[in-house]
Design a binder for these strands. Structure first.
Length: 584
RNA sequence: GGCUCCUUCGUCUAUCGGUUAGGACGCCUGAUUUUCAAUCAGGAAAGACGGGUUCGACUCCCGUAGGAGCUGCCA
């Protein structure tokens, strides 16, 4: 038996074990399975490169078990990125703040400078932060779900923040669509939504204070100058830097408009994002630009607002789309400039359309409300979305209740997934079967109304009992409606050609003989009806094949319907006999 | 262009260096049969490619190809 196989038996959490080892020997590249210090292996020793080497080293360990990172950030292990490596660069935090400031930060309690909340044991706070520039699409819904599950499972808080700092594009209609969509999905936040733009004053104040501390600066570049410098930087393969980052650059033109920019980390520094999904992602300082914090009208940009709000809201874990992965490095730089602590990040891959391309109107980029209108149940949406990018062994359909027990960041996948309506249908079918009959009837009525169909002519007393039989046969609400159509149809039924053909003279004659038999059935219940039908067939000396099609034609006019005995029961004795009479 | 991320059946995924690569949806065949479904039983179906490390690689490393993201006074 291999040593590896022994581990789980000897030690409750082999991951934790591997992790603790990794802390000490990460940079050696040694096997994380043993506690023995192992000298740096030859393969690694030959490497002459620096950043990429350490990056791949980090990948080697962190990719496999993102879990391991947690320990690495634990307080007992000291400051975050501090590895006992000779190559270690100066912590980027210190370079662009004033000396006294740097000293202050250096001596501040560690929780303001480095490790994650997770490690401190403080309560978990997550947030979903959509921008109200459009409906809530399925990717956003999934992000919200993950944040909600993660917080609720941990007994923490899940908050909602509307990122409306783009005044041009934010609309109230979008805000409503998002709120309604989330409400429909059942993902309620622990507290009222925070509207980001309402906090603009606070953002501005934060930026100004950062300017005073040297972490940010006022930039007086004209648009033309800026464009020229950006082009030049791009040509050089470097991130944009404003000359105004240099305090000695010049005296600002009087009364000129300015913008406030982050004084980005130095070229040779590195920003590491310990992502729970993607592993440790290292970004060179040269890749981070002097991005804008305050626009020339002094309103905050997204970059500033997220960082300040996450801080003020006490957000500990940021679970969001992959498209923010590179932003995480920028935000980390900003957070460090502020001297705040960096949340734990988990960047989940985007959802693609069924053609593998970016989601568009054509495939899945519909508002969640449109999924409701297509007849999906919210619990089915949650279950389907959960499995799009998250897994736990062979578990397939996971109820929200189970998910609240099982969800973890470790189960998040790293590759983008595609929307599959066929699978969604089958998950929905599963939840329709589990759903309460009365609730389904109500949903069916709502659905019909939303589609502009006439009100269902039967009352709940007739529809609810039928639901138990008919819901087995439908994947979505419209399909449910189709299953009910034979019940809902009004006499006299309109018949398709096939049905008319089925009602030959001979068949009608037989149905005429069947009528009194059915009329004699006292307990109108499918078991007794079935008995009567079988007896009748025996009496006629024919197989049921001679009776079924005709009876069905008379009863349903060709509409899909369940087993005839059941169909008869659901129709009721009176209606059934009347429908028989109609064909005589 | 630069940087970053991703790559197991058609789709969602399991796999933590040794498996006949497992499950689910879909698909195909059969059973059932009174329509349409449902159900049951079988089946086909995957490690992008090329190197390397190793006794052994889907798994670790490097490269290539393909896909995606960022590079906005958008978020």
């Amino acid at each position: 038996m291999s040593a590896r196989r022994c581990v789980p038996k000897l030690i409750p959490s082999h991951k934790a074990r591997a992790t603790s080892v990794r802390l000490t020997h990460a940079q050696t590249g040694s096997s994380a399975r043993t506690e023995q210090p192992i000298p740096a292996p030859k393969a690694k020793a030959t490497g002459s490169h620096k950043i990429s080497r350490s990056a791949s080293c980090a990948r080697m360990f962190c990719r496999r078990s993102p879990n391991q990172m947690r320990r690495r950030l634990s307080p007992s292990r000291g400051r975050v990125m501090r590895r006992p490596s000779p190559r270690r660069v100066v912590d980027p935090v210190f370079e662009f703040v004033s000396l006294p400031e740097a000293i202050a930060i250096m001596h501040a309690p560690t929780e303001t400078t480095g490790h994650t909340h997770e490690a401190t044991g403080s309560a978990i706070v997550t947030r979903f932060a959509p921008s109200p520039t459009g409906y809530l699409h399925i990717g956003g819904a999934r992000t919200a779900l993950f944040n909600w599950l993660f917080a609720r499972k941990a007994g923490g808080k899940y908050l909602l923040r509307i990122e409306d700092t783009d005044r041009e594009r934010s609309t109230e209609a979008a805000v409503n669509a998002i709120l309604n969509g989330l409400a429909w999905l059942g993902l309620e936040a622990d507290g009222p939504p925070l509207f980001q733009f309402a906090r603009a004053a606070r953002h501005r104040e934060a930026a100004e204070s950062l300017v005073e501390r040297g972490g940010a600066f006022r930039c007086y570049l004209t648009p033309e100058e800026e464009t020229a410098l950006k082009d030049a930087a791009r040509a050089e393969g470097k991130a944009f830097r404003s000359p105004w980052r240099n305090p000695d650059y010049g005296t600002p033109p009087p009364a000129a408009r300015y913008v406030v920019r982050l004084r980005a980390p130095g070229d040779n520094e590195r920003i590491e994002v310990a992502d729970k999904v993607q592993g440790v992602v290292t970004t060179a300082g040269r890749e981070i630009d002097d991005f804008i914090l305050l626009r020339s009208d002094l309103t905050p940009t997204y970059m500033l607002a997220v960082v300040v709000d996450d801080q003020d809201m006490g957000v500990t874990h940021v679970i969001r789309g992959d498209d923010h992965l590179t932003n995480a490095a920028r935000q980390t730089a900003l957070i460090r400039a502020f001297g705040w602590r960096v949340p734990t990040y988990a960047h989940i891959p985007l959802i693609h359309g069924d053609d593998g391309k970016k989601l568009s109107k054509r495939h899945g980029a519909l508002g969640v409300e449109e999924y409701r209108d297509m007849g999906y149940l919210p619990e089915a949406m949650r279950a389907y979305l959960l499995r799009l990018g998250w897994s736990k062994g062979d578990l397939d359909i996971v109820s929200t209740e189970q998910a609240l027990e099982l969800f973890d960041l470790e189960g998040l996948g790293r590759s983008p997934s595609r929307l599959d309506f066929a699978k969604m249908d089958s998950v929905n079918a599963h939840f329709i079967r589990l759903a309460d009959d009365q609730r389904l009837v109500s949903l069916m009525r709502e659905h019909a109304a939303r589609r502009g169909l006439p009100d269902l002519r039967l009352d709940d007393a007739a529809l609810v009992p039928a639901m138990a039989f008919l819901k087995e046969r439908a994947k979505t609400l419209p399909e449910l409606l189709t299953q009910f159509s034979f019940l809902l149809a009004e006499r006299p039924l309109t018949r398709d050609e096939k049905t008319i053909k089925a009602l030959s003279e001979e068949v009608v004659a037989r149905l005429a003989r069947l009528r009194p038999v059915l009329a004699a059935v006292e307990t109108w219940e499918h078991v007794t009806i079935k008995t009567a039908l079988d007896d009748f067939a025996a009496h006629e000396g024919v197989g049921f094949g001679k009776i079924g099609p005709g009876l069905r034609a008379a009863l349903t006019g060709g509409l899909p319907a369940p087993d005839l005995a059941i169909a008869l029961q659901l129709l009721g004795k009176t209606e059934s006999l009347l429908r028989l009479d109609d064909v005589m």
